[in-house]
Design a protein around this nucleic acid. Sequence first.
DNA 1: CTAATTAAAGATAAATTTATCTTTAATTAG
DNA 2: CTAATTAAAGATAAATTTATCTTTAATTAG
Lengths: 147, 147
Amino acid sequence: MFSKSTEYALRATIYIAQKSSEQNKLGINAIAAAIDSPLSFTAKIMQLLSRGNRVVSSVRGPNGGFFMTEKAMKLPVRSVLDQMGEDEVLEKCILGLNKCSESKPCPMHAEYRQIKLDMIRLFETKTIEQLAADLKEGEVYIGNKNK
Amino acid sequence: MFSKSTEYALRATIYIAQKSSEQNKLGINAIAAAIDSPLSFTAKIMQLLSRGNRVVSSVRGPNGGFFMTEKAMKLPVRSVLDQMGEDEVLEKCILGLNKCSESKPCPMHAEYRQIKLDMIRLFETKTIEQLAADLKEGEVYIGNKNK
DNA sequence: CTAATTAAAGATAAATTTATCTTTAATTAG
DNA sequence: CTAATTAAAGATAAATTTATCTTTAATTAG
Ligand code: FES
Ligand code: FES
């Protein structure tokens, strides 16, 4: 479905939303360890994810790190896709035609249509904050280690 | 969602199902032109797709080419994924955890669960033949050119 | 101001996917 | 049997994605 970059970005965002605040920032080491992702690659992804401080915010220097504002946590999960430049990914034709449309549909379009709409609705209505809350409950996992 | 290889494989299969028969085989040129895919790459994909003659069948030499048996056309679309070695793709965790499961779910699992089941059901119940029938009606497109 | 700390930026590298091209094998028509 | 035709197999190459490493810039504590 998503690229590794986007997967890590989603996991990192949810983790930061749950663990950090402007007073308590998270370093890249803590993030990569928690979401079980390659350190340097995750650092690269965090650059994209925090660019413009729209979704995740970052500060350099001692006591610096990554965090999210209360406002950013209320954004839909889709914002992470947008920030990563993957905003088209949910709209694509499942058979790879250049464009998914009602007027020139592929053979799977009619059946796939509702699934696609459900997917878009999920990403547009669910907020980062809501996912972070589930993580806080401890009933859900963000890495493979399940420490 | 799928790799380019799998997208071309799905499109090629549906096209072959609609246009070919054991008496009327399709050459690789005709297939690539119809589904609007790169010729040589498609040839490679057709090798995988026809290996074992499970989904698509192939015959070499004059009047050779690709075709599908009546029986193969009744297979679920999922068989194409299996044949391409992409049989795990529908089962994956949307956040990229090693394993999607009820016992160690990711933060999106609960909401994604139904979408995933819908997707699996679509690929397991819809047959290649059914998709080909829609294509025959001309209400549906398998390439970008829409000739 | 200086040293320490942290992310940003940039340069590469490794791995994978996508794509192309050439040679071989099978099959058929004549 | 021979020539023609077609896919299979194999060797590369190009492009993209994933990953790593080094240098730079920002920021803070002292
Ligand atoms: S056109 Fe293929 S999914 Fe909509
Ligand atoms: S565990 Fe992530 S989708 Fe099931």
